[in-house]
Amino acid sequence: MNIFRLAGDMTHLASVLVLLLKIHTIKSCAGISLKTQELYAIVFATRYLDIFTDFISLYNTIMKLIFLGSSFSIVWYIRQHKIVRRSYDKDQDTFRYVFIVLPCIFLALIINEKFTFKEVMWTFSLYLEAVAILPQLVLLQRTRNIDNLTGQYVFLLGAYRALYILNWIYRYFTEPHYIHWIPWIAGIVQTLLYGDFFYYYFHSWKNNKKLQLPA
């Protein structure tokens, strides 16, 4: 565990928790793409299939449980909570799941480190995480509304991406045989897409006068 990895995990965790707490507190999910949040929940569910079979560390297990719990809680709030669900704008959140999920399944089946169920699911989760932000991007472009997407959420997600790449560079030079092309390439694609997200966010912020950052 290096400092980049720990900081990356913490910012990733914070991004999810900030979103969950915000939805819980203001009882609104306006501007948030349910599809992106559902895809993230699928990402964690398919990636952490090893949670009860391969023990890595207490830290690892607890973090996995928190990610699973918080991502499914966000989806529950948007779909089921009697007040929050009214603020969800279904008509704007139109990205089709199949365009994201099917290519990821296909890619995971042909490009993976090992052709086993767990390994293919793990690989699928990496590909899916890389593109799961797309429905959120489409929603953002369509509504041009960034007020409801907190500055913190965007900032923390971006910090997580950047720190994970630094972590990989660090591990590449400090650990023998640390070469993982699949997560690296998927991670770089994800970071580039995030850059697009950040661009719109910044652009709106620049033109749009006031962006309310939560306290």
């Binding site: 990895r5 995990d9 990733h12 090893d50 391969d54 890595i56 560390s57 690892n60 973090m63 996995k64 990610f67 793990w122 994970y164 972590n167 023998p176 045989h177 640390y178 997560p183």
Partner: peptide
């Protein structure tokens, strides 16, 4: 040294 089994990143 061989790579450890499993994926240790989140």
């Amino acid at each position: 040294k061989e790579q450890p089994q499993g994926h240790d990143e989140l």
